[in-house]
């Protein structure tokens, strides 16, 4: 057996809202090896961020509640740790980068202090040692004239520079796992390219594992070696990056790949119409008896509406939650 850094098993997170119980995460599971980058993709609202927040014990509660499951980090169940135990792991062994740096950087604290903070908390460095190390990290993430900018406040930096500060902050303690939740979505492509190559460089330097959450299939294809596709709170497909692009199984994965415009489409004379996935995601509050994708699926048949499909094994490392595995002749050839 391979050593796993992180294993999530049958995790369910529900939000208890006035209008009902929203099953934001409904029995998901996946694992992450040391040094691996795993992509987590799926439609907005499918539960990607809630999954990430669960790992760090940051799900807002109430209304959120972890109903079931285990999150094993180096064989320890994080869901069993108390607040103090989690705090020790957060920022040291596991750290997180959020989509919008302004919400996670402290606006009234100079950036040098913010990067130095985790070192003082987790590594017991003195203030001056920590500041020296912070300066080195800001330099490393290519903040121009880093040493002169230690006293700058976040609002004095551009969006791309703030994201670099976030990365420096997440990296100072050399975590084993980095959770990056849409780390570049708010950035321009040119800055995104810089941030992504910075993440790749640091990842190989520190031999870190990365859980990369994004809805950008381009980013995932460039960064991850494996991918998990979520739909309405569940894992619907997982597999090696190359398999997912070359032979996706689940109709949602296929639809997603086909609905994306690609650079060069025009030149290649590909048809001007994009493939659409009709309809919208189902409500997480209403109970669904069958497959959650049934309402939008071009292949849907009687079984799909009655019974929820399992995550069937498709091939080496590839699994998909779809009845077509059992009833292959039901797949419509042209959809």
């Amino acid at each position: 057996m391979d050593p796993k850094l992180l294993t999530i098993e049958a995790l369910s997170v529900h939000f208890h809202l006035p209008e009902g119980v929203a099953r934001a995460v409904d029995g998901i599971g996946f694992d992450l090896q040391p040094g691996e980058t795993l992509g987590l993709v799926g439609e907005s609202g499918c539960g990607k961020s809630v999954t990430a927040l669960s790992i760090l014990g940051l799900v807002q509660s109430p209304p959120g509640r972890i109903e079931a499951g285990r999150i094993l980090f180096e064989s320890r169940n994080l869901l069993r740790l108390d607040a103090e135990g989690l705090r020790r792991i957060r920022g040291r062994d596991i750290s997180m980068i959020f989509q919008e740096p302004m919400t996670s950087l402290n606006p009234v604290l100079p950036i040098g202090r913010q990067v130095a903070e985790p070192l003082m908390v987790h590594k017991a460095l003195s203030r001056s040692e920590a500041m020296a190390e912070a300066a080195a990290w800001l330099d490393h993430v290519k903040i121009p004239a880093a040493r002169k900018r230690l006293d700058d406040y976040p609002h004095q930096l551009s969006g791309g520079m703030r994201q670099r500060v976030m990365i420096a902050m997440a990296m100072v303690c050399r975590p084993k796992l980095l959770i990056a939740d849409e780390p570049t979505t708010a950035l321009d492509v040119t800055i995104q390219a810089q941030i992504l190559s910075l993440m790749l460089m640091l990842k190989s330097e520190l031999n870190m594992s990365v859980l990369l959450i994004t809805h950008d299939l381009g980013v995932v294809a460039q960064m991850a070696s494996r991918v998990v596709v979520m739909y309405a709170g569940q894992v619907v497909e997982e597999g090696r990056m190359t398999d997912m692009f070359d032979q996706p199984f689940h109709p949602y994965t296929r639809g997603l790949l086909k609905s994306m415009p690609r650079l060069g489409d025009r030149r290649a004379g590909r048809p001007p119409r994009l493939n659409e996935i009709p309809g919208t995601v189902p409500s997480l509050i209403e109970a669904v008896s069958g497959c959650r994708f049934a309402g939008r699926c071009p292949h849907v048949f009687d079984v799909c509406r009655k019974q929820q499909p399992d995550l069937f094994k498709i091939g080496a490392g590839q699994r998909a939650r779809c009845w077509l595995k059992r009833y292959p002749d039901r797949r419509k050839p042209d959809a």
Partner: peptide, 14 residues
């Protein structure tokens, strides 16, 4: 700088 949605074609360094 546009990340190619294709794992076989890694974007060149920027």
């Amino acid at each position: 700088a546009v990340p190619m949605p294709d794992p076989h074609r890694k974007t060149e360094p920027f």
